[in-house]
């Protein structure tokens, strides 16, 4: 396991956090991660995150679900086990709509949820490091990765960017 070190600084208000991030960005300091107790409006824009691809994954999975749902019903009712119910045609499209719709939603939901968990590396037994347990309470944290022993320097940068408390972490 490679030895990593991080420096963290926390804020008590989301506006101060955003100001701090801007200050660090002006000095071209790379931010490893930002952790907050709730989603902060506009943070992903400030941090220039690329828009999530989850919606696309959901759409593809939904289309797949629709195709499977309709195709399977059509096969069952025309090839495998044709039933004459009320004299309706074997390929009874209106009847196939409910199940097709449900499978669309189900597949899309699975894609979104598992896509989210996998891309964020979250799951049962995930061992992500929690640097500060107060983040999930009321602290907004900026994490900077230490390289070439510049921990002291990063800590002072964070303090001048307005952080309330600054700490070094060895992982």
């Amino acid at each position: 396991m490679q030895e990593k070190a991080f420096v963290s600084g926390y804020y008590l208000d989301d506006k101060d956090l955003v100001e701090g991030i801007r200050a660090l960005q002006e000095k071209d300091i790379e931010i490893a991660d930002v952790r907050t107790p709730f989603p902060v409006h506009g943070l992903d824009k400030v941090l220039k995150y690329r828009r999530s691809r989850l919606p696309r994954a959901g759409f593809v999975a939904g289309a797949f679900g629709a195709a499977i749902g309709f195709g399977f019903q059509a096969w069952v009712f025309t090839e495998a086990w044709p039933l004459n119910f009320g004299g309706k045609p074997f390929l009874s499209v209106p009847s196939f709509i409910p199940v097709t719709f449900e499978l669309t939603v189900l597949m899309a939901a699975f894609a979104l949820v598992f896509g989210f968990l996998i891309s964020s590396k979250l799951g049962p037994g995930a061992d992500n490091v929690i640097f500060d347990e107060e983040v999930t309470n009321d602290r907004f944290q900026i994490l900077l990765e230490v390289s070439n022993g510049n921990s002291e320097q990063l800590q002072s940068e964070l303090q001048s960017a307005g952080a309330e408390g600054v700490k070094h972490h060895d992982v």
Partner: peptide
């Protein structure tokens, strides 16, 4: 639209 059509189609 589907609700009205499906129900009338189904009960025939």
């Amino acid at each position: 639209w589907v609700s009205q059509y499906l129900l009338i189609w189904y009960s025939n």
